[in-house]
Amino acid sequence: MFAPAPFLLKDTSVSQVMTQVCIALVPGIAAYAWLVGPAILVQLVIASLAALLAEAAMLRLRKKPLALFLSDGSAIVTAWLIALTFPPLAPWWLVATGTIFAIIVAKHLYGGLGQNPFNPAMVAFGVCIVSFPALMSQWPSVGLQLPLVDQVNVILGLAPRIDALSSATPLDALKTALKLDEGAFDVTHLLANQDIYGNFAGRGWEWVAVGYLLGGLWMWQRKLITWHVPVAFTGALVAVSGALWLYNPAHFASPLFHLLSGGAMLGAFFIATDPVSGCTTPRGKLIFGAGAGLLAYIIRVFGGYPDGVAFAVLLMNLCAPVIDLLTQPRIFGMKDAGKGGKA
């Protein structure tokens, strides 16, 4: 009999970790389904099925144990993040294509679980927004009260995609309005008078973001993530948006608007914290998070895409190995004696 020490092990596993990430997404999903529309639940199912199918096929091809890896939950997390970042009424095949691409190309072609240099969900978003820019930019107008059946029909392509389905995101609408009517409007005026804006940011969406924040805080409390990435991400976003907002409040939205808009909260707590494609050293995580927050702002405000989180994370994924290499922490005994926390 051979069993190496330690004989005692903590009760933990990859599938436990992934399950807890999914649980942490629930408050955000609930707000999403309640305030934006229950179609998101259908998208979550579609994405999950596509992810499991692609995962099973790839595991089969790579001759890996099916049950062990299908149950690890990593494919589901990827699927959910994809569903949550795609427009809720996107056609089913768009979500499925994105998910399958993420699992096959971004995950398994790089070696599967734990080996992917890029966040698979963000690869899916990037690929789809470049390939299908129109569909990826159609967000349902606020106040669109379609019954679930009709929403499902839209997703499945059984009902026509009417104009009301293809509004812009609050972030995009702001950008467009400011570009079209240079000087005629200011941000405060826009936010107060346009229907798509709520109290702080996009109507409804702002509470979805708060849901993600709550889930993220729970993950931090459970030690699934450390504080570094979310703090650096949101800190950088607040710093840069705050500076520009103070400089010209008529032209730039407030930090609060940016924090609660688009994928900022999802990105800060669920995407930039992905350990596989992100940084692992404490200082590395700070650089990674800050870089992602800064790039997300630049892309969403000055770039051509509705939101910048996906590309910001992918760009930082590229830098992660080098950042890790350069930020290796000093080890026990290799710093000044006597320094450090007192009990």
Binding site: G114, V276, P329
Partner: peptide, 16 residues
């Protein structure tokens, strides 16, 4: 299972 680089080990290591 494969390592997912979660960093739990680094946080637990008493020699940092």
């Amino acid at each position: 299972m494969p390592c997912i680089r979660c960093g739990s080990c680094a946080q637990a290591c008493p020699h940092e």
